[in-house]
């Protein structure tokens, strides 16, 4: 069989760059279809009630209360599925987008449940008696207990840092309260026994089962699968700026291919607690998936223990995840990084260098001082291999520093960003104030929002 003629070297480099930096991004229509399917699933039980010769209505207010109660139950069940990193959610959306959607839909869920409770009382003021903890029927007590569990879940999420709740403990509490709230809501619906006696009840039960299965997959089945594909810590390399790089090697497998800009949940293979896992951006080149590395700055919790890891420690990686995918036809890249927010950018630059990418890269990189610029020397070397210009911004510049000083803000970005950014892909990663300043500046410069990918680094 005749072989196709080899592609010219530049085309091959181009193809490699696209593979390492990003595949064709999913079109917005895919996400539109996903939202439509999600919306249909949420209201499916309502449709089943109507299709099943329901009992006569009791006035629009109480019927609206019932409808919101059923919708709330569906939303609650699906809330367990969204962050579970399962294919039907994580593939079209990206695990990071799915978690953000989970957070935003929590607001919708609270509004729906609050409206349900208020309308139950407005529709029939005698229902106020349902809040009597001694005299109320068990179905009402189940509903109140479910609301209390949800309130505790939200409070523990909002106040986690303030009450110094460790990330792993918070995750355990979060899942436990979520499952508890769902079970109590289902009990409430069964006790009310009005609309969920037939097909609609089966649908709600199925949604609840899917939610519980998603938790089982995330907490039990997935960790077991990952245990069969461990990585070894090969080196622990101290970096400038108080960071360390964990250089890993796939043990007995080839590693999972990833795209620069993605992240993985990292977990010690021998850690007894299954909930202690932490998300970090890949900092290595996507060209070597069998040797991924993660650069971690000690902020507390697991990040403080990272420098103490010994070579030979076995770790598990749940990844790659993350929706970022460089546009294949981007003409140039603008990377804006603050502190340890450099990690996805260094992965992009290393991948570009490995792929022989010829496109121009501009890195605007904020650090505390010159001595603490993580990857300082490597950035110098990379700028000799690829078309890279680095603008260092130092909060505490040394005497005689002629570069940029202070913080990354709109005026600074306007000085350095090229005037025409229409073909550029922009990746921003840093602390909340830096992110806000950079995004405001990009808006002023007229960069299309869909070409800007922003990530706020989190300290967990």
């Amino acid at each position: 069989m005749a072989r196709a003629p080899a592609a010219p070297a530049s085309d091959r480099a181009d193809a490699l760059a696209r593979r390492l930096l990003g595949a064709a991004p999913l079109r917005a229509s895919v996400k539109g279809v996903w939202v439509a399917v999600y919306g249909l699933v949420v209201v499916l039980p309502l449709g089943a009630v109507l299709a099943d010769a329901p009992p006569p209505g009791r006035g629009i207010v109480l019927e609206l209360a019932s409808a919101l109660g059923i919708v709330g139950l569906s939303l609650l069940a699906l809330q367990l599925v969204l962050p579970a990193r399962v294919g039907p959610v994580a593939r079209p959306l990206g695990a990071d987008v799915a978690v953000r959607l989970h957070r935003h839909l929590a607001d919708v869920l609270v509004a729906v449940i609050a409206a349900h409770v208020v309308l139950v009382v407005i529709g029939d003021p005698s229902n106020l008696g349902l809040f009597d903890p001694l005299g109320a029927p068990w179905r009402a007590r189940a509903a109140v207990a479910s609301c209390v569990a949800l309130a505790a879940l939200i409070a523990s999420s909002v106040l986690r840092r303030r009450i110094r709740l460790a990330y792993a403990r918070w995750r355990g509490l979060h899942v436990g309260l979520g499952v508890g709230a769902l079970a109590l809501s289902v009990a409430h619906a069964v006790g009310v026994d009005r609309y969920l006696a037939s097909a609609a009840g089966l649908l709600v039960a199925a949604l609840a089962a899917v939610g519980l299965l998603a938790v089982l997959e995330l907490r039990v089945l997935r960790p077991r699968r990952l245990a069969g594909r461990p990585y070894l810590v090969e080196r622990v390399v101290p970096e400038r700026g108080g960071a360390v790089t964990l250089a890993l090697r796939a043990e007995g497998h080839r590693g999972r291919p990833f795209r620069a800009g993605q992240f993985a949940w990292l977990k010690l293979a021998d850690a007894p607690r299954a909930l202690a896992e932490h998300p970090f951006s890949y900092s290595s080149s996507a060209g070597r998936p069998e040797r991924p590395s993660f650069t971690i700055k000690a902020y507390g919790g697991f990040t403080r223990r990272a420098p103490e890891l010994r070579p030979g420690t076995r770790v598990l990686l749940d990844g790659p995840h993350g929706s970022y995918s460089a546009r294949p036809h981007a003409e140039r890249f603008v990377l804006i990084a603050g502190g340890i927010g450099i990690t996805p950018s260094i992965s992009l630059l290393r991948s570009a260098a490995d792929a022989g990418d010829c496109r121009p890269f501009l890195l605007v990189y904020g650090s505390l001082c010159w001595e603490q610029v993580t990857f300082r020397e490597e950035l110098e070397r990379l700028s000799e291999r690829i078309d890279l210009r680095v603008v260092h911004v130092l909060t505490e510049p040394p005497p005689g520093w002629e570069g940029e000083a202070g913080f990354i803000d709109a005026a600074l970005l306007e000085r350095h960003l090229p005037p025409n950014l229409s073909g550029a892909d922009v990746f921003v990663c840093g602390s909340p104030p830096m992110l806000a300043a950079a995004l405001a500046a990009l808006e002023r410069l007229g960069v299309a929002p869909e070409h800007v990918h922003a990530e706020q680094f989190v300290t967990v």
Binding site: V35, V42, V43, G57, I60, V71, V97, L101, A454
Partner: peptide
Amino acid sequence: MHHDETRWMTAAIELWCLLAALAFAALQST
């Protein structure tokens, strides 16, 4: 200002849930 697609997704789902609940209530109370 960056393109946080979860905003339109959330708004669409929220609106859809509200409309579906209102439609259910209207149909059931007539």
